[in-house]
Design a protein around this nucleic acid. Sequence first.
RNA 1: GCGACCGUGGCGGAAUUGGUAUACGCGCCAGACUUAGGAUCUGGUCCCGCAAGGGGUGUCGGUUCGAGUCCGACCGGUCGCACCA
Length: 828
Amino acid sequence: MTDTLPDSYRPDQVEAKWRARWAERGTNQPDLDRAARPFYNLMMFPYPSAEGLHVGNMFAFTGSDVYGRFKRLQGYDVFEPIGYDAFGIHSENYAIKVGLHPAELIPRNIANFRRQLERVGGMFDWSHTLSTTDPAYYKWTQWIFLQLLKAGKAYKKKAAVNWCPFDKTVLANEQVVDGKCERCGTAVEQRDLEQWFFRITEYCDRLLANLDTLDWSDTTRTAQRNWLGRSEGAEISFEVVGSRAGGQAGQPLNRPTDCPPITVFTTRPDTLFGATFMVLAPEHPLVAQLTAPAQAIGVRAYIEAAASKDLVARKVGDREKTGIALGATAINPVTGREIPVWIADYVLMEYGTGAIMAVPAHDERDFEFARKYGLEILRVLAPDSRTISPVSSVLSAAETETDGYVLVNSGRFDGFSADAAKRSITAELAAKGQGKPVVQFRLHDWCISRQRYWGPPIPVIYCDACGPVPVPEKDLPVILPPIEDFRPDDSGISPLARHEEWYFVPCPTCGKRSRRETDVSDTFLDSAWYYLRYPSSEFDDVPFDPARTRKWCPVTTYIGGNEHAVLHLLYSRFLAMVLKDLGHIDFEEPFTRFRAHGLIVKDGSKMSKSRGNVVIPDEYIAQWGADTFRLYLMFLGPFQEGGDFRDAGISGPRRFLERVWLMVNEVEEGGELHKPLVVRWHATKKKAAEDIEALHYNTAIASLMELVNAMKEAGSRDRSIVADLVVMLAPFAPHFAEECWERLGHTTSVSDAHWPAWDERLVVSDEIEMPVQIGGKTRGRIQLARGSDEATAVALAQAEVGVKRFLDGKTIRKVIFVQDRLLNLVVD
RNA sequence: GCGACCGUGGCGGAAUUGGUAUACGCGCCAGACUUAGGAUCUGGUCCCGCAAGGGGUGUCGGUUCGAGUCCGACCGGUCGCACCA
């Protein structure tokens, strides 16, 4: 056990020694049941790719680890787990590409990840690791699905989905970028499939309201707010005229029919007088009834063309608007005028009611459409009601900047402000039963179905007699069968359906031969609850033990990438709310504090395989050691902003460690310390602590370097200072600090030391060198006692050389004195 | 298009409430020690100028005794979202 290392700093030996000791001693395993001050330090678990951890992962994990180690030095019982988000399309596609089975690849990748994670010195509790692909884990993912199903929060419906013909699977809207599959770049189509959904939209209000209570970075909260997309407005009903009920031919136009009114959602009920036509989404259920016979052929062709596009292509904003009139008219409820009804694919069935009232004068899209098809444009907002002629003014573009405008061409509402008109018009419509105030969200229900292999099977059985039957909890997990032919085909049926022994099962209710659900669930479901599993990972009879969960959850601090600011974090929040409502947990916000880290770039551009600038950390760690590598990553830029990885920079942190190493090995006892060094010492203890708490690791490290520089300058290797330095370095360079700590005579781990206390009276010196400015320009300096207010007198008496000549022939008009900061003499 | 953020030496980056611009590190220059150094140590390093001094934080303007910091306009960049009615 007394591994004697040479006097020169040999990172490879030091790090190997301490890795072994930590494992032997269980240094990084808090007692989860008895911890007095639990601190759950979570980082986003990685997808275990075949390439191994890249520098970006290392940066993120190290930054989180530094924070966890710091909290431990502050006396917390820090639980810092790590695991693997190993299910999902990414693994499956890679497996297909290299012709191996994911079940074979993933364990191999995980082993490699673990080796790297240990090598870099993370304070991970390996006794509580997990992989989402482990049946002991996904058993509970399936259990969660069943709880939602039981509670009516999961449902199945046929829905238009994005279909990637290459990956042969459904994609979430978020996975489609510019009409293309985010993974493979193939153009996405639209298909109708039966899908499982979670009712996240029921939680919109809570998801939004709680944001104000969270200690999260503003950018992340803003992103979530935008994603939820709350807007206030009104639903308005338009009676239909001149349509043909049931699409039958031969009835005269222009007479009321039994067609129900068209309901639209608008945020601008104040512009209702300017609604000169209506537009429905091509999929709108009333389209068939509203289509006049003369238009039937054209309308059908238009609908088919729209359906052949993917859902995202429909949403690309700069596309030219197209549409077709249905040959029906509706009645504007406030003007009584008949306005034509059109369909156009710029109106989306998924938002609002799938129908809009078009106000071309004040909406760019409607304006463009009206221009193209020669529809009436009627201005209803103007700077002043008297300056605008009552007839429609000619506009060259939609007038959308209408702050402070008032209504015109709006009958009895002329002169109303937009806000007043919104209220009044909505109220009037409501009184007539033709409208009501409505709040809309942009968020849709969460589609969790994936027609894929590599995921947890959704635990449902379809029986011809009993219908869909949930798999009984005692039968969980529904094991993902180890089939060889896991490739998806374009049938839209999961590969699992081809596996007959698995596919056909007796109905749990009646025992008849039935079929399993063959869709697997979204990877985001795996990751939406993993934080609950870590503290309880050794329990196999419950997903999360109540006592453990109460002690450790919610997560104290969560650090991760902003790319998950919306989906992962939103889904996790939603699931926590559901689990709380169902009585499984007693909190509804899973992550008390969230911070997003920055991105590491290489030579100014994002690292990517295609650019060929991906940095493999292993080589750097081998050459420089994990401690130097960690220190460098944390020093190269602000953690929350990321930075540029450049080879040259890494030698600085290494030299710094070498210097500290020398000090430790030549440490001196006792001796008197010069005041400036004492001040620097105490100031560093304070500043480094504050900086680490704020995740300003780069400046924390800089302050430690300054302390070392000050010691060198003073020729001091004082034992107390060196010991404090070692402790403060421990979060960044843990193996190094352990070795130094031992050499200083300690037998316990440096991670069980305490962050050095500072004396608040000693963090600033009592002598100040104060700048003296004349007219705002620094002309000299004076020595002054802290707290002194005699700067002016001192400056005039003491600073002849530097200051006086600037005062010759001038009058001092004003004296600006900021205590302990500066003196500014304003002259004429 | 909308939203958020950001422009500081040769480079990565520091700068409490507006208060000595460029901390810390890299690189570079000079010197020392060396058979040697791409090791180590010492000193220097925003620009112009011998100096006194002057200029300087993307550009232009404003507020202020004082602006990297606040306000307005513009230029450039990064990241989200994107026909959301």
